[in-house]
């Protein structure tokens, strides 16, 4: 066996190329975001630049309605995550604890919903939202994101729920508690780690979704962040790359920090729950 120190050095050497490639886009974002505008297109290209222009961020914020897009993204992601969880928890519980007609069918149906990419369905979805009167309404994204994530959330939660012993609930039933009470009082607190993991996953998916947001949101004040940033690049007579990158930095860093903090739960949840 190698000593821990030796092993650490070896592992970091192996990981180094990957880490460099992972950090590269972040470095690109940052270095471009703080560059003066006239140093964007220089030849030969270089990492260096003359001064840190932090004003780029402020300019970008005002020019691109970044704050509005940020709020939209937060609203959609948080609400969609909550909705997906509220619908998935009982379903996953039922799948984990009961035998009932159509269970296998339902499982396969969920797998199929997972297969559909929003882009494939976008026109049908648009017509649907139109009938529901939800076009140009952020709630149309909330509903679709919740629906598209449900397959994964139910599957994830169910596998995790399977690993929670039934004894506690059974004891509660003996004491005359209803199924609902035992679910809320006894079971859910035990399931918190799995719920957190599922929530992170759904949140990230919703936060990052692009195609549906592009199609459903008609006016610029309803744009979510990915659409907002894409619209700074696409079909413009001129792309303000330093503003675009300032936008991506601001859109990314908070999530990256949050994510770094929560990722341990993600792995633990996968370990406890998935693929049982």
């Amino acid at each position: 066996m190698m000593s821990k120190a030796k092993r650490s050095i070896l592992y970091w050497i192996i990981l180094a190329p990957l880490v460099v490639v992972i950090l590269f886009p972040f470095a690109v974002m940052f270095v471009t975001a703080v560059r003066p505008r006239d140093e964007l297109f220089v030849y030969p290209p270089t990492w260096g630049f003359s001064e840190f222009r932090w004003e780029n961020f402020a300019e970008m914020w005002v020019k691109t309605n970044f704050g509005g897009a940020l709020l939209n993204s937060l609203y959609v992601s948080i609400t969609a995550t909550s909705a997906a969880l509220i619908l998935s928890i009982p379903a996953a519980y039922a799948m984990s604890r009961y035998r009932f007609a159509g269970k296998g069918l339902y499982k396969n149906f969920l797998l199929m919903t997972q297969m559909m990419s929003p882009i494939v369905l976008v026109l049908g979805l648009f017509r649907l939202m139109m009938t529901l009167g939800l076009v140009n309404d952020l709630n149309s994204l909330v509903i679709t994101y919740a629906a598209f994530n449900m397959a994964f959330t139910i599957w994830m939660l169910q596998s995790y729920f399977n690993s929670i012993p039934r004894d506690l609930e059974e004891a509660a039933w003996m004491d005359g508690a209803s199924h609902l009470t035992s679910l809320i009082r006894i079971f859910l607190p035990l399931a918190v780690p799995a719920i957190v993991v599922t929530a992170i996953f759904t949140f990230i998916n919703s936060w990052n979704e692009f195609v549906l947001a592009l199609t459903m949101m008609r006016s610029s004040e309803d744009f979510t962040l990915p659409v907002q940033i894409y619209s700074q690049v696409a079909g413009r007579y001129q792309v303000e790359w330093h503003h675009v990158m300032a936008g991506t930095v601001l859109a990314t860093v908070p999530v990256a920090i949050l994510f770094s903090w929560l990722q341990r739960y993600l792995i633990r949840g996968m370990a406890l729950g998935a693929v049982k």
């Binding site: 990957l18 880490v19 992972i22 990230i204 979704e209 991506t248 990314t252 994510f259 770094s260």
Partner: peptide, 9 residues
């Protein structure tokens, strides 16, 4: 670090 790319859309 390895998980980081996940957080960007």
């Amino acid at each position: 670090l390895v998980m980081l790319p996940w957080s960007i859309s």
